[in-house]
């Protein structure tokens, strides 16, 4: 069971309080009707699913209820960075380097 720090509550809590929301930074297109079927499938279903350093969404569902983003190494399951929704995606490559990957 992972230990996750909610950036809004500022506390570490067990994973049971959280719900993972899949890959982060996949914005719903502004004008869906203007998108091709391929583009819509890309938005709906295609995921990077990285083996290694990965940005994903979490929600403190049994806490403050807020969504936030986290960068986690999907091999070691270690969190490398946790940040609030709306903040830009960190440079994954440099985070990976810091983590010695």
């Amino acid at each position: 069971m992972l230990l996750i720090e909610c950036p809004y509550c500022g506390v570490e809590r067990p994973e049971l309080e959280f719900r993972c929301g899949g890959e982060a930074h996949i914005a719903r297109p502004e004008d869906p009707s203007g998108k091709t079927d391929e583009e819509w499938a890309e938005f709906l279903y295609m995921r990077t699913n990285t083996k290694g350093v990965y940005a994903e969404r979490w929600r403190h569902i049994h806490g403050c209820g807020r969504f936030f983003n986290a960068v986690r190494d999907t091999v070691s399951d270690k969190f490398l960075k946790i940040y609030k929704a709306g903040e830009p995606m960190p440079d994954l490559a440099s985070l990976a380097k810091e983590a010695g990957k």
Partner: peptide, 13 residues
């Protein structure tokens, strides 16, 4: 409820 929160917080803040 979770879906509403999701769209509200992450797509249409």
């Amino acid at each position: 409820f979770a879906t509403m929160e999701d769209y509200l917080q992450t797509e249409w803040p």
